[in-house]
């Protein structure tokens, strides 16, 4: 069986302002496939309580976009591919061109903006994305029609983000998988890998979530890991080894 891709999300500036580099380095050394760095936002609409709280704390720690890019430029991953997750207003107000230029300089090739629909992306921002060599990652859910899944997959690099069920992130402790949807998704001949996200918390739910896809995304559960007491580095190592064993 093909190895499943592992994508770990964390909020920049949490638990401490300068935790970003240590987290990146530990994840990179643990050979995590994708590291998704979340830009903390005051009003994260698609996120459940755990990521909301981490964003709130990160902002209280005094993090801002410039600081985050400064941190990202200081550590070059040797294994992992970096991705940024930001809400549209953060990027828009910072300046889309300026943001993408920073991405390019930090070696980041893809950007998830959960509240930027494909159509608005194409009309307003696609040219800028192309100019800086950054591609968007789009999300689909069990309620997305087949035609639209194909359309979004054709515009999404390096993977398509498949939300496990209709919910905000990390809202439910129990992962529910719409089997019929995932079987249909698996049958589509999509040009990019599919990664399942939302409500994956342990090895068991990771395996169920990725049964029909190429990998999984872990966010809230990892935020709880880095927010926990004890040594940050060893906490992360233990957490990742549980998924990799």
């Amino acid at each position: 069986m093909k190895r499943k891709l592992l994508n770990i999300y964390f909020t920049a500036g949490y638990p401490k302002l300068d935790s970003t580099i240590e987290i990146l380095k530990t994840l990179d050394e643990a050979e995590v496939d994708f590291i998704e760095v979340g830009i903390p936002y005051s009003d994260p609409l698609a996120d459940g309580p755990t990521i909301q709280e981490s964003s709130h704390r990160a902002l209280k720690n005094g993090i801002n976009i410039e600081t985050i890019f400064g941190q990202l430029r200081r550590y070059k991953c040797s294994f992992s591919e970096l991705i940024i997750m930001a809400y549209y207003n953060s990027v828009l107000t910072f300046g889309m061109g300026r943001f993408l230029k920073e991405c390019k300089e930090a070696g980041i090739k893809s950007l998830i903006i959960p509240d930027l629909p494909l159509e608005e992306y194409q009309v307003r921002h696609q040219a800028d994305f192309l100019r800086y060599g950054v591609s968007p990652v789009f999300l689909v859910s069990p309620s997305t029609e087949t035609e639209r899944i194909e359309l979004l997959a054709n515009n999404s690099q390096p993977f398509l983000y498949v939300v496990s069920s209709s919910s905000t992130t990390g809202t439910s402790s129990k992962l529910e998988i719409d089997r019929e949807f995932f079987e249909n998704l698996n049958a589509l001949d999509l040009p990019v890998p599919c990664l399942t996200g939302f409500n994956i918390s342990d090895k068991e739910s990771f395996e169920r979530a990725t049964k029909f896809t190429d990998g999984g995304i872990i966010g809230s559960a990892f935020i709880r890991c880095i927010g926990a007491q004890g040594n940050l580095k060893s906490n992360i190592q233990t957490f990742i080894s549980n998924f990799k064993s």
């Binding site: 936002y41 609409l45 809400y87 207003n89 953060s90 828009l92 107000t93 910072f94």
Partner: peptide
């Protein structure tokens, strides 16, 4: 305020230079 996206609509909003509401 300045233009930005709040509650899924592009309009004026009170925000800082990083887009935090």
């Amino acid at each position: 305020g300045t233009p930005g996206v709040l509650h899924a609509s592009y309009s004026y909003m009170m925000q800082n230079e990083d887009g935090q509401v």
